[in-house]
Design a protein around this nucleic acid. Structure first.
Lengths: 240, 240
DNA sequence: ACGTTTATTGACTTTAAGTCAAAACAGGGC
DNA sequence: GCCCTGTTTTGACTTAAAGTCAATAAACGT
């Protein structure tokens, strides 16, 4: 590839990044339905036609934005997985990463929900769906690796299928994030700290599997302090 | 109110029911975004204007459909809550009800997800939002009542806040339904029976709270048989 | 400087939600 | 049965926004 072509490729990538950046802002502000590509075009100071040179459809754009966020989340998971300690402490660090992400991208889960419907998914391009799947499996594998290690060292019962453990953690985390953010559920359940809800529910599921050490047998507050100090010093939301 | 007015009111209600019925079918087939009110008008053999005499916006219609489904779900919960036995068995009956609903309305959760975004919610009418909240709180109270009873009789530790227990069950159920229905997660986790995933995860959370009797100490297969026989004979999906 | 290729544009097409003036209908009095 | 009046229903119209593409501008090589 010639030098000129390389430069053009760089410029193209920079422009795509610019569109994604402003797109993310508008998507979070307005939701997918109300995201207006004419407005986005005005904002990034390119024509709508140019946006369509990068993204096949509005859904394609939204999926690309979501994938970017997912990549960032996977990055936090990776940092968390480097935490040293008992397997349950390491899992806790991943849970911490998940909350850190939720705090920084407060409304990301609303977008993620929009994606889950088949009628959305099928309007995005093949390639972008692949990219999204790639990041999703990164997240899964980080979780699953720690679970596998836990079974190996006997912190989890030998009968537990690792994917089932990972799945239960994914499900409870997703569900807790959504539920704890709903105003009506907040009211009914008297929630004042949604993040605390997510972490408590993750603990419940780990305890449910009999993942040692159980909540009652160990000082996880100390673990949280270490996670915060060693891995996520930027996590000002964590009061430990 | 005159006899004529009463008849007109009945006819109006019947028409609304007709619109909701066909609306539900099209909404499940096409998703919210692709639901076409011109097509719906043709299907119910009324004009689009008439549909707008019943519903302020497309969102309003979709919310009404969702509320109908929620009402049905609450009905199943109510039936389940009449089950006699230990508190954990009664909770299990409610979990069973939830799965029964999920089997009958396989794709309902996709719709429910669409609702959760503020940009959707704010386009529905005040009254329909109230109705939806009403049904949601019915569901919550059935769950919460059983949890309260469990704390009272000592099946749950006295320290547990009942809303926290209820919330964790709501969250894990919601999350499991969504996660277990996603094709990519099914692939990664090797899911062949999504309903089994939901029930297992509900058990994990109950065990996590220390809700007696724990899974390992009791024959819940016998409970499931009783639930099926006594409350949900129509639940052919349940193999016990 | 000039022709050729590539990149960008925004006016245009299309689709579908939402509106409302006009048409159809129903009920009651004669 | 017919007309008049108030109510219901309609579907052509307005509007908004996604997506397209012929025309234009910029970049490039000679």
């Amino acid at each position: 590839m010639s030098v000129t072509q390389q430069r053009k490729e760089r410029e193209r990538a920079a422009r795509e990044e610019l569109i994604l950046e402003h797109g993310r802002r508008l998507l979070l502000r307005d939701g997918f339905q109300n995201l207006n590509l004419d407005e986005l075009a005005r904002t990034v100071e390119y024509s709508k036609g140019t946006i369509y040179l990068h993204f096949e459809t509005k859904e394609d754009l939204a999926l690309a934005i979501a994938t970017g966020a997912l990549r960032e989340r996977a990055g936090l998971f990776e940092r968390a997985s480097k935490f040293t300690g008992l397997t349950r402490e390491r899992m806790r660090a991943v849970g911490f990463a998940c909350c850190q992400f939720a705090v920084v991208h407060r409304d990301y889960f609303n977008i993620e929900m929009t994606l889950k419907s088949p009628s959305f998914w099928e309007k995005a391009s093949e390639e972008r769906r692949r990219q999204h799947g790639l990041q999703a499996s990164r997240l899964f594998h980080i979780t699953n690796t720690i679970v596998t290690e836990a079974v190996r060292v006997g912190d989890l019962p030998p009968g537990a299928r690792t994917q089932d453990v990972a799945l239960s953690l994914i499900a409870v985390t997703m569900g807790s994030h959504i539920a704890a953010m709903q105003p009506d559920i907040q009211m009914l359940c008297g929630i004042d700290d949604p993040i605390a809800v997510v972490r408590r529910n993750q603990d419940l599921v780990c305890d449910g599997w009999g993942w040692k050490p159980l909540l009652q047998d160990f000082d996880f507050a100390a673990t949280d302090r270490r996670i915060k100090t060693e891995i996520f010093p930027e996590a000002t939301w964590c009061k430990v």
